[in-house]
Design a protein around this nucleic acid. Sequence first.
DNA 1: AAATCGTGGCT
DNA 2: TAGCCAAGATT
Length: 345
Amino acid sequence: MEIQDRLLTWYRENRRDLPWRKDKDPYKIWVSEIMLQQTRVETVIPYFNRFVEQFPTLQHLAEAEEDEVYKAWEGLGYYSRIRNLHSAVKEVQSSYGGYVPYEPKKMARLKGVGPYTLGAVLSIAYDQKLPAVDGNVMRVLSRLFVLTDDIAKPKTRKKIEQLALQLIPEEAPGDFNQALMELGATICVPSSPRCLLCPLQQACQGLATGQHDELPIKTKNKAPLKQKMVFLLIRDQNKLWVEKRPDTGLLAGFWSLPTIERDKGESAIDAAIRWGELHGILLRNGRQVGELEHIFTHRHWNIEVLEMDYLGIENMYNENISLWTYEKFSNSTLANVYRKALKFI
DNA sequence: AAATCGTGGCT
DNA sequence: TAGCCAAGATT
């Protein structure tokens, strides 16, 4: 039997019952694909269920306020995803009458829709013959055909897309793409693949030559940059000072606790006072009230949380700082690293 | 092409 | 612990 038939048969008998597989609503499939980027299925499930309940159709999402939409994404990470998705959905509503485009060129122009998401949405929702090559597919095909290209290189993904396209059966592009990913997620897993349960066991060149454990080839990531950070709790009556992060970079545009990186040899209190000088706020006498570690993809923050004595403000107007009540903290969208720090207030 | 962007779980 | 990984896109 062909590889395609074995894989499709296996998939149709073993596919997980996931919330975004209840129907073929292009909008819901799109939302799920964005959420699933670099994010585990188990993590996504509760977010997805809440999201589609709150925004049942593309039109609901397009017409929703940004605050509400971002709040629904709080804690999921990679927040440019939701910024781009909201923007793209509004574009679909205004330019395409609320229908997710069928034409790949139109879909590809939407913000946040890269080669993978394009192929995934259009193949699953509309059964279009397009590759959907994610990390799973690169791993599965690397092992199946003993591809020794470095999957960390963009060039390799393009090569594997061409291969994947050749493999897609005319009659079931959506199921075939999902089957490759499902195999990678449940059988052909990164370490200790469950080859004995694999429907492609006989066809797998990697298994036959004993190279399945060495594949795929992938260059190592750099170690995350270690930084000593200080978060400030600055009380004014029943409120706390917050600052707005820059519009680019890490946690772009989010409101946060006042944050500053310690210079070499600088004490946490001196760093805190330096933050105050930068923002026109008079501070002194900090006390550490907590400490925590937080690891991003490429940064490792050791964080001291300091409660400061607040003496007053110098500048009357600074758009990048504000005073929030505790209720405001609950209602606003806060990145997890800051949500974690709030336990020390 | 390589760096950047969150978070949580597992080894 | 430190490193790796998870249905990637953008710059």
